[in-house]
Each structure stands twice: as C-alpha cells, then as structure tokens.
C-alpha cells in the first residue's frame, strides 16, 4: 500500500484541486475561436477575397470583438482580487504566459477594430459617418489593407498559441505539461473559427473553402491528440498517469465520445461528404465542431487540475 493522509485546509485543493472553474475554459475557447477568426479574416484580406461582394472578412472582426470581450469578462470574473486587475498593465513579466497574454489581448483589440472599420455595415455607417470616412480612407490604400490583413493573421496566431502555452508551462499539472498543447489549441481554434464563419458566410465559395479547410484542421487535430497521448505515455510516471485520465480514467468517456467522436470524427465525415457534393452543406457539422472545441477546453482544464505529482503517484500501481 501507499497511503498519504494530509491535514491541510484549502477548499480549492482538498479533496480535489479546482482553483479554476468554468471561466477559464470559456475564456480559452473564445480566445482560440477569436484567434482562428483573425487568421481566417486576415487570410481573406491578403488573398484578395475581401474585394468580392459579401466577403465575411468584414463581419468576422466585429463578431470577434464581441466574443473576445465576453472571454475577457469570464477571465475577469475568475479573478479573486478583482479591483487589482489594473496591476496586469503596470508591469511585463517575461517568464509569465499570463502577462504575455494580457499584453497580447491589448494588441488584439486595435487590430480587430481596424479590420472591422475597413468596411462597416450600412446601418452603422449612417449613424457614424466619421467612422465610415476613416474606413473608406483606409480601404482605399492597398498597402494599409495588406498590413491590417498581415497583422490580423500574426496577432491571431500569437493569441491562439498563447492560450495553450498558458497551461502547458504549469509544470505542476502533468496533464497540461505537453509542449504540443499550444498547437492543439491553435488548430482547434482555427477549426472552431472555420466552422463558425461557415455558419453565417453568405458566399457559397467561402462555405466550400471553409469546409475544406476545417477538414484539414480536424485531421491535424486528430493527429495532434494522438501525439500528445503518445508523448505522455512515453514520458515520466506522472505523465503516464495523466494519459490514463484520457484513455480509461474519469475523463475517457467525455473525451472520446464528445471531443474526438462527435467533435472531430463525425463532423469530419459529414463535411467530407459535403465538399464532395454527396450531401448539401449543413450547419450540423460546424455546430458539432464548435461544441467539441468547447468541451475540449473544459476537459483539458479539468483533467489538468485533477492530475498532479501526488495523484500521479497513486493512480499508477
């Protein structure tokens, strides 16, 4: 036997480690989704698609601004010392991914705003003619438009990566401690964003392109998931135990059924049929992808908190 009795009093840790609740996975999902939306929107601008009628790249940034604000509200709600939140912007701690994230989010807002005003909707343009003027001046300069597109892609990429790095650097939680987590979150964010834009894209060619891209993202995601689990299984004892959480432990059912099965494999097949004209494009697959991405964040955040150096010792015989 190997038994450890601890007399500590800490409601966030004993009996189960749960300092982070629903706020963090919601924030990570929305952060990843917005990152993906910025990359796709930036790509549409750089590839010249923005010149086509009804290009979704002008709607995406406005929606992304709303989504990232909801995400940041969730992050704020998670803080225990809320009135001191301004402290994030009095310093830059280069070893802290959270400090990087705070400054990256500050970079994301102006870029999304610039992208949004390139072509603002008519109803807003009537109320705010000065904004329309700025947008028209900007969109009249090809170089400025290209710069905004490139900045959107770069900052989106950094935002998407950071959401994974935030967790993977926390060495105390073996289930997060994978150097591939940032790739998973970035690709998952791209996949969710492609699915989300697919839902409201007006142009048929955009929907087709996004469905094809999402298929690529889903295949990449499945490979990354496999590599992360293999990485854990070939690593130390505590990371073996972390892998078992997903393979046959308490997170196995939700992970394989809702994240991998209904969130990746089934929508992949639906979209493969759709892009090969076997069936019509349906909103079901994108919705499944997005819900799967959300559940993935909940599973990863929860499993990471469940895993630890002490629990790792005891779940392995």
């Amino acid at each position: 036997m190997h038994e450890l009795i601890i007399t500590r009093s800490n409601h966030l840790i004993d009996p189960i480690f749960t300092p982070w609740g629903w706020e963090i996975p919601i924030y990570l999902f929305l952060g990843g989704l917005v990152a993906g939306m910025m990359i796709i929107s930036g790509y549409f601008i750089l590839s010249g698609r923005h010149q086509k009628k009804d290009c979704s790249c002008f709607v995406v940034p406005t929606v992304a601004l709303a989504l990232i604000s909801i995400g940041m509200t969730a992050l704020f709600l998670d803080l225990e010392h809320k009135l001191y939140v301004w402290r994030l912007y009095t310093t830059f701690q280069w070893t802290s991914p959270m400090s990087w994230g705070a400054w990256i989010l500050l970079l994301v807002y102006p870029i999304l705003t610039l992208n949004a005003i390139l072509k603002i909707p008519e109803n807003i343009a009537k109320k705010l003619p000065w904004l329309k003027n700025i947008g028209e001046k900007l969109s009249g300069r090809k170089f400025a438009v290209k710069v905004i597109g490139a900045m959107s892609m770069i900052s989106g990429g950094i935002l998407g990566m950071y959401t994974g790095v935030l967790l993977s650097t926390l060495v105390a939680r073996p289930a997060w401690n994978s150097s591939m987590l940032w790739i998973l979150f970035l690709v998952s964010g791209l996949s969710a964003a492609a699915a989300f834009i697919h839902l409201f894209a007006k142009r048929e060619d955009e929907r087709r392109l996004l469905a094809k891209a999402d298929n690529g993202f889903l295949i990449a995601e499945l490979m990354i998931v496999a590599l992360i689990i293999i990485g854990f299984l070939t690593s130390s004892e505590v990371q073996n135990a972390a892998a078992m959480l997903f393979i046959n432990g308490p997170y196995a059912a939700v992970f394989w059924v809702f994240v991998v099965g209904l969130g990746m494999v089934v929508p992949l097949f639906i979209q493969l049929f759709a892009v090969n004209d076997k069936i019509q494009h349906t909103p079901i697959a994108p919705i499944m992808v997005m819900v799967g991405g959300l559940i993935l964040r909940f599973v990863i955040v929860s499993a990471g908190q469940y895993s630890g150096w002490f629990t790792g010792t005891f779940t392995t015989p």
Partner: peptide
C-alpha cells in the same frame, strides 16, 4: 500586487498556496 488569478496555485506541485478570503 496580487490579482488572484490563481496561476501560482496551479503551478505549485506542493499545493502550498491558498486564496485568502480578502482575495489575494
């Protein structure tokens, strides 16, 4: 200076930190 983000709580392998009722 503490905003109560709990990153340090999550990062400690010894589970040695707690959030004081006053938030820090």
């Amino acid at each position: 200076k503490c905003i109560g983000c709990k990153a340090c709580v999550a990062s400690c392998p010894y589970d040695a930190r707690f959030v004081h009722p006053e938030g820090y």
